[in-house]
Design a protein around this nucleic acid. Structure first.
Lengths: 250, 250
DNA sequence: CTCAATTTGTTCGTATGTATG
DNA sequence: ACATACATACGAACAAATTGA
């Protein structure tokens, strides 16, 4: 009657990694705050239903990450100098999104092969030809986003140099005489593949936020089709509702 | 010069699980469509830089999930009858959110201990006393959301029976003479802990979407404070931007 | 100061899983 | 399918540091 998956029964992820994740999470969510003493090893043994060695390996992982400190005879404590995750506040209006993006300096990387741009229903029609741009967004030298953009070649040719130096959305917003039809974005949650994980300097399998963003011109032709993969641990979405709670009946 | 992490270098997840994830993803994103022949084992060996047995174990995982079929001498193919993930379209306006929630039948579970409700900045002030309600949201008998609600006891006492049978937000919206101040929601991405994973019938460590939702009354007192954890693989957020792309300069 | 309880650190033996060639 | 090497997990026992009675 253990609480945890038997080894490799549930997604085949090592037990001590699972335990470490649970503990890491409690620290990140401040269930245990810096300086706090966390549960003792025997307590964790019982709680997770695993052997002592397994708990110790989990704790060792967190120790190597600098999240905790250990003292024989006293206990295990949350480290004090841990830097809080500063969230990227993603805005829900497009102009603030552009503003947010303008602060970032994209580092362009060479793209191997361009997959065909993928449009959903009601997201416009494809243009004749696209330029494929791939870049990494960073903050404090820490990469947090992997961007793959399909940019209509018509648009690209209007300012090829700018598009190779700045974020495409930002350039588009500054182009004169370009009419924007609609802008639509969807978010799904995924996990980092090997290549993605390498670019974002995160673990394979760690959660990600994947944005699919489409901007069309006045004729409903998709001029900007982007896939942006953000590290899950630096994304926070704020939604302020209008006060219309009182009349959902009609 | 392998493409993959050496065993346990990167997050300590078994190689064949990593390979399987990559392949699963290609199928989910329709890089390989149902009926398609996927890369041969020698090709995958080379691409990921792993041994033959490792590739075969990855493929075996997917086979057990019913995602692929194998034929000796022909190749490996994406299974035809795979059911697509039907997304929960989460709306960004509150009344449609309530409408969405009203379709769901919550199954209440008994809560062990109530953690103190957690308010962020600008999310109002705490009421004197709260009732703690915990429930599971399901669709087609598949659980997808784990809800923990702190409900102001003042509000709860207005319709205790309803609050024990229906979703709290829905009940609130139908209460007469209750003025709503603000409603605010934030979304972060996390991973499923042991208990959460059990309720949502998903793997420990699988990605989740965690909503923190606060509704205040006219006096800025928080009457509804909820933590909702959704399975990551059934959440999709749609954001339609207003056409205001042209003037982010000022 | 000593003793006992608590808590982390270390080690052994064994069984099974993972990965290579 | 086989041989090899290493990683994961269990249970149990013992050692060392800290704390408070």
């Amino acid at each position: 009657m253990t609480n945890l998956a038997r080894p490799y029964e549930w997604g085949n992820i090592p037990l001590y990694v699972q335990v470490a994740s649970s503990l890491r999470r409690r620290i990140e969510l401040e269930h245990w705050k810096p300086g706090d003493k966390i549960s003792t090893i025997p307590e964790l043994e019982k709680e997770f239903g695993v052997a002592r060695v397994t708990v110790r390996r989990a704790i060792e992982l967190l120790h190597n990450e600098g999240l905790i400190s250990r003292q024989q005879g006293r206990g295990t404590f949350v480290a004090k100098g841990i830097k809080k995750n500063r969230w990227l506040e993603l805005e829900v209006s497009l102009s603030t999104l552009v503003k947010f993006i303008e602060d970032q300096v994209p580092k362009f990387i060479e793209a191997k092969e361009a997959p065909a741009p993928n449009l959903g229903l009601f997201e416009g029609v494809l243009d004749d030809d696209y330029v494929y741009l791939k870049s990494i967004q960073s903050k404090n030298r820490e990469p947090f986003g992997l961007v793959s953009v399909h940019l209509s070649r018509r648009i690209y040719d209007l300012a090829p140099k700018a598009f190779r130096e700045q974020a495409a959305l930002s350039v588009i917003s500054h182009l004169d005489g370009l009419s924007i039809g609609r802008a639509h974005q969807t978010l799904i949650i995924g996990t980092a593949e090997v290549e993605t994980a390498r670019y974002l300097k995160t673990a394979v399998h760690s959660p990600t936020a994947e944005f699919h963003c489409v901007v069309t011109d006045g004729d409903d032709v998709a001029i900007y089709v982007a896939e942006i993969i953000y590290r899950g641990d630096c994304i926070k979405l704020d939604i302020e509702f209008k006060h219309n709670l009182s009349m959902p009946r009609d």
